[in-house]
Simulated assay, not measured.
Amino acid sequence: MNLEQDAAEAIALKGLAWLAGNDELLPIFLGARGASEADLRAGAQDPEFLGSVLDFILMDDAWVLAFCAETGLANSAPMAARAALPGGAQIHWT
Rank of each mutant, 00 (worst) to 15 (best):
I91G: 05
P78L: 09
A74D: 15
A42G: 07
L54T: 05
V64S: 03
G88T: 08
Q5I: 10
R82M: 05
E4H: 12
M1T: 15
D23V: 14
E4P: 04
Q90Y: 13
W63I: 04
H92Q: 08
A35E: 02
L26S: 04
A84K: 03
R33L: 00
L85M: 08
E70R: 15
G31W: 02
A12I: 05
I28V: 14
A20Q: 09
A35V: 00
D39T: 13
R41F: 11
G15P: 05
L16W: 03
L58C: 09
L16C: 04
N22V: 07
E48A: 10
A77P: 13
A44E: 09
D55Y: 02
A69Y: 11
H92E: 08
R33C: 01
I28H: 01
A12M: 05
L16H: 04
C68Y: 06
P78W: 08
A20T: 08
G51T: 02
Q5C: 07
E4C: 08
K14P: 04
K14H: 10
A84H: 08
T94E: 12
L73Q: 15
I57T: 00
D39K: 06
A62C: 03
F56H: 10
E37Y: 04
G21Y: 04
A81K: 03
L50H: 07
F56I: 08
M59T: 15
F67G: 05
L16D: 00
E4F: 09
D6K: 15
D61L: 12
Q90N: 14
Q90V: 14
E9P: 01
A84F: 06
V64Q: 04
M1D: 13
G87V: 04
A69K: 12
A12K: 03
E24L: 14
M1K: 11
F29H: 01
G87P: 05
M79C: 10
G88K: 02
A62P: 01
P78M: 09
A42T: 09
L54R: 02
T71C: 12
G88D: 03
A74I: 10
A32G: 10
A66D: 15
D60K: 13
N75F: 15
I91A: 13
G31S: 06
W18K: 03
E9S: 02
L65P: 00
W93A: 14
A35N: 07
D61V: 15
A80C: 06
L85N: 00
M1W: 07
W18N: 02
A7D: 09
E70H: 12
V53R: 00
E9G: 01
D39H: 06
L13Q: 10
P47C: 10
Q45G: 08
R41W: 07
D39V: 01
T71P: 03
A84V: 02
G15A: 09
V64P: 00
C68E: 06
M1F: 13
W63F: 11
L3W: 03
A62Q: 07
P78H: 14
I57M: 06
D39A: 14
L50D: 01
L26Q: 04
A89D: 15
P27C: 02
